[in-house]
Design a protein around this nucleic acid. Structure first.
Lengths: 163, 163
DNA sequence: TAATTGCGGACTATTTTAGTCCTGATTAAC
DNA sequence: GTTAATCAGGACTAAAATAGTCCGCAATTA
């Protein structure tokens, strides 16, 4: 399925909810109610998001959670990384891991590139996009000259619906 | 991690190996040896690939596995789907699944689009690309006019290294 | 100081994944 | 027709990841 864990999904939903009231801290139980998810679970994801630096927390009365930076600056890949660790498709697709089969399998390099392309796509989409009530349009991407060797941050551009 | 299962990774490696000798059937134990993976496991993945129609099998002496179609016609998304089921990032990102929270979470539509973009990327890369000994270059994609509403199959173009 | 709220971590249960093994069916060669 | 090679299907086990809950402590504010 190549799927996100449920927790990552929850994280996105909860963050989107916070993003819709950016001015005041929102407490975990309050958020849980709004997104219809169990409190301890929401609490857990918020703690993970805090550890990853995506949200700020305020304790005490009137406390709660705030975005640590604007929704435009929180990338989908940040959210996923906060919950599941860095985005990488295979064990050998992140360089620090030494797969002793890498030399043999003859596919490792190419998997790495696929993985990179995916990460870049996820980098190009932000919480602000997710939180929009209007559906996104993710642009069809287009091939460049065959000699291009690097990715641009803009490789997959996401724009608002034009209506 | 948003990672592939090991089995999917194995499947890619094994398929790449088959692709390099397209003319004759290769038996499971032989393939296992070549890719340095345990026989029963390779056997299992091959059975899954067969069920998904990606390889043909021949029983008996001199039997083994062959690609069911050319490596250019086998997409990475096919391989993943054969092992893990259809590519979809979240439970609600495939339409037939009814997530009762969809109306509430305010994110579902956008997740679906992210998921779609990912699938399209995976559609655009084939076994032939993976099997190449030379590393791929996956093209930087480029935004089109803001009013574009559909994806093109070519959205992420993969080309051979130009060296 | 009391109420509210986050923090950290332990813990359990469930599901998924990985990996193995066995028995039977099919095919080709002799 | 017999034999050996090979795939087919599925049962099974073990291990790991995931999901979810709970508790006691720390911080903050009124």
């Amino acid at each position: 399925m190549l799927k996100l864990s449920k927790l990552s999904d929850y994280a996105a939903v909860v963050l989107a909810q916070i993003a819709r009231q950016p001015q005041r801290p929102q407490a975990a139980p309050e958020l849980a109610e709004e997104v219809h998810l169990p409190r301890p679970t929401v609490s857990k994801t918020l703690k993970m998001l805090h550890k990853a630096g995506l949200v700020e927390s305020r304790r005490g009365v009137q406390g709660g959670y705030l975005l640590a930076r604007s929704a435009e600056q929180i990338r989908v890949s940040d959210i996923i990384a906060a919950i599941e660790g860095p985005v990488a498709m295979t064990a050998c697709s992140h360089s620090d891991n030494d797969c002793e089969l890498a030399a043999l399998c003859g596919v490792a390099d190419n998997w790495q590139r696929v993985s990179l392309a995916m990460r870049q796509m996820l980098d190009s989409i932000t919480l602000a996009h997710l939180a929009q009530r209007e559906p996104l349009q993710i642009m069809p991407a287009r091939a460049l000259a065959p000699s291009a060797t690097t990715f641009s941050r803009e490789s997959l551009l996401v724009s608002d619906a034009d209506s």
